Every structure is written in structure tokens, then in C-alpha cells.
Simulated assay, not measured.
Amino acid sequence: MSELSINTTQNVNINFTAATIGQRILAFGTDLLIMIAYMIIIVMFINYSGLGDAMGKMDPWSGAAIMIVLFIPITFYSIFFESLFEGQTLGKRLLKIKVVKIDGYQASFGDYFIRWLFRLVDIVFSLGTVGFISIVVSEKSQRLGDMAAGTAIISLKSDISINSTILEDINDGYVPIYPLVIKLSDNDVRIIKDNFQRAQKHYDHEIIRKLTHKIEAVTGIKNQSGNDADFIKTVLKDYNFYTQNM
């Protein structure tokens, strides 16, 4: 499975796992079954409601217009549900995959529309061949519609949490202590957090002490807490505070 690095609006890279070709096919198959079920219901309605007889007495244009209206939900199925569920059709929700923008922004209706429009090439006219090949060969597992819209499909089953990023959970009333943390870069903070979490997991106090000294040397900050672990936690929170409010 390929990894997707998405840069958020806060200039933070978060890694996700791209949905596999199998997940995408199963999601598409599920959506297809739902659409087939809808068509069967419509056909039964036409046959048993008397609408079929009424349409038989209409001119061809009127009958065609009624059929178009009845089957509009099939035509716009994907764009409707992706817009409604923010990147998921019913099949995608079941398989726990989702359409996202690769620049970190929330995908818009225009993005879903572009993906829907390219279905003609990716799926309909090529019977899925073009879409399959482009997903397999592209770096971010994108079909042509995704490439045009700047989107990708990720797996929500990925073991990704706030602890996997440089983000920290800070409340609205948080008061920072060390303004000089802005001398650090995103990569510096990522390295600090990764090593700090590993050191805590293995009770490696020596690594925590070395991280504290390194932070002090790079930023000019002096540990005011007297506790190295608390100092590093504060530095991480302060960095998030300042970078999110700049």
C-alpha cells in the first residue's frame, strides 16, 4: 500500500495510507449493486403502477423525459453522495475509504464534479480499464479524475492519530511559555516528538535529557519547569500554538 503525505492548511504533513485497488473495486461494486437495486425498483414501479401503460400512450419524447427523470439518481449517484458525505459514497463508507484533496484542503463540489466527469473516460467508455491502469501506475494511486481534481482516496483504517503527527491538542485558553520555539522547523519538531515518544515508551531518561539540551542549544530557551519531560511537552504545545496562530 502506498503512503500519501498530505500538507494541511497549518503547513503540517500528515501521512495516510492510500486505498488499495481492491478496496476501491469493492466500494465501486457495492455502489453498483445499490444502483442496480434502484433500477429494479423503478422497473417494478413502472410495470405495476400503471405508469408503463400510460407511457405507452404518450409521444416518444414525453416517455423519454419521464425515464430520464426516474433515472437521474443513477446518473448523479457518485457526485451526490460524495458531496453529501464529504468524499464518500455508500460503498466508500462501507469500505472505510474517502476522497481527500492532496493539498490538505477539504474537497469541494467542483472537485467531486471533475471526478464524476472523468468517470466517462476512467470507467464508462473504457469499462474501467483506464481507471484501473492509472491507479496502478500512479504514485498516489489516482485515476485520471483524481489527477485532474487534485484528489486521492485514502483508507480510514489507517493507524493515524494526532500522536502520529506534530500536532498537539491545545485548548482555546492555552497560554504559551516559550516564544522562541518558533526557531524550530516542522522537521525539528517532528524529530523531537518521535524521539520523545520512543524515549517515554522505553523509559529512556537519557534521551529525554539530551533532547532538552538540544532544544535549549538551538532555541536559546531555558528549561523553567525543572523536569525535562514536562519541558519537552510544553515546547511541543507552544510550537503548535504559535504556528497555528501566525
Rank of each mutant, 00 (worst) to 15 (best):
E3Y: 05
I6M: 03
I6S: 06
N7Q: 14
T9P: 10
N13T: 12
N13G: 13
N13S: 15
A19M: 07
T20A: 06
G22M: 03
I25S: 03
L26Q: 05
G29H: 11
I34C: 09
M35W: 10
M39C: 12
I41L: 10
V43K: 09
F45M: 06
I46N: 15
N47V: 08
G52Y: 08
A54L: 14
M55K: 12
G56W: 08
K57I: 11
W61E: 15
S62L: 11
S62Q: 14
G63Q: 13
I66Y: 12
M67L: 10
F71E: 05
I74F: 11
F81Q: 06
E82G: 01
S83D: 01
S83P: 05
S83I: 01
L84C: 01
F85V: 07
G87Y: 04
G91F: 00
G91K: 01
L95M: 04
L95F: 06
Y105G: 09
Q106S: 09
S108Y: 02
G110D: 09
Y112F: 14
I114E: 07
I114P: 07
R115A: 05
R115V: 03
W116N: 04
L117G: 09
R119N: 10
D122P: 11
D122R: 09
F125H: 00
G131H: 05
G131I: 11
G131T: 07
I133A: 12
I133F: 13
S138T: 07
S138K: 04
D146V: 08
A149Q: 15
A149R: 14
A149I: 14
I154D: 01
S155G: 13
S155L: 13
S155R: 05
K157P: 04
S158H: 02
S158F: 01
S161F: 13
S164D: 14
T165I: 06
T165A: 00
L167P: 06
G173C: 04
G173P: 08
I177M: 04
Y178C: 01
Y178P: 00
L180V: 11
L180Q: 15
V181Y: 02
N187R: 04
N187K: 09
V189A: 02
I191N: 01
I191C: 08
F196P: 08
F196Y: 07
Q197D: 10
R198G: 15
Y203G: 15
I208P: 03
R209Y: 08
R209D: 08
L211P: 05
K214I: 13
I215M: 10
E216P: 06
V218Q: 03
V218Y: 05
G220H: 09
I221Y: 02
I221C: 02
K222A: 09
Q224T: 15
G226T: 02
N227Y: 05
A229F: 02
D230A: 06
F231E: 00
V235S: 02
N240L: 11
N240W: 04
N240Q: 14
F241D: 00
Y242I: 07
T243F: 03
T243M: 03
Q244Y: 13
